[in-house]
Amino acid sequence: MKIFRWFIGMIFLVGIVILIIIRPFPFLFYPDLPYINFLGRVLYIIILACILCLYRVWRGPTGADRIVAIDILGIMIVGLCAVLTISTGRSWYIDIGIAWALQSFICALALSKYLEGKGFDD
């Protein structure tokens, strides 16, 4: 039964990835930049990974699961900003990435303190 579930899930995931790779999606960016076909597909696969994270935020049995998923989501957005930097050719996207990384780190520390049940003094 577990093998069956694994099989269904793998077919679903690999199917979505193959669909993203072979199907010509409409890209929102400038079509005359180099490698834009490859980088647009990269963006869609990162969004797929973010949806997997959001599943864990939605269905997490405890609060710690949700905090882990939010932390991981913050790290992945930095990669998304880096890909946006090359795919649009605007260099200020990486500034958003750096600010997001700092913010996500401090957010994770504060949430873990909250989870521990102590105040912020010690």
Partner: peptide, 15 residues
């Protein structure tokens, strides 16, 4: 990233 993981693991175990 490892420091954040360490903090979350310790907080989860204490909680």
């Amino acid at each position: 990233a490892p420091v954040a993981a360490h903090a979350i693991a310790r907080g989860a175990h204490r909680a």
